[in-house]
């Protein structure tokens, strides 16, 4: 597992208080929103803040979020491309 993907999982668990999950429970391709990890719209706001605060990336187009936040993999790829 790449460091960035591991870092993202750790940050998401801590930032969103996902106390019942560990890094091993989140697969790179798991859907973050919906049945698998179960994040919601408030979590999306937290992720937007995390992207800007920790990686210096400002998500200006709300429509972009749906694609970027699909999974750890899509999020990592977006950061690698824009950081």
């Amino acid at each position: 597992m790449s460091d960035l993907r591991l870092e993202l999982k750790e940050k998401i668990i801590k930032q969103l208080n996902l106390e019942d999950l560990s890094v091993e429970d989140i697969q790179n391709d798991d859907f973050l929103f919906g049945d698998e990890i179960g994040l919601d719209s408030i979590d999306a706001l937290e992720l937007i803040v995390m992207l800007e605060k920790d990686f210096g990336i400002k998500l200006t187009d709300p429509a972009q979020g749906k694609e970027v936040f699909t999974s750890i993999e899509t999020l990592a790829q977006f950061i690698e491309k824009n950081a």
Partner: peptide, 13 residues
């Protein structure tokens, strides 16, 4: 800490 910058929405809500 963030100089009135980025804030966690959850804590505000």
């Amino acid at each position: 800490a963030s100089n009135e910058g980025l804030l966690s929405p959850t804590k505000f809500i």
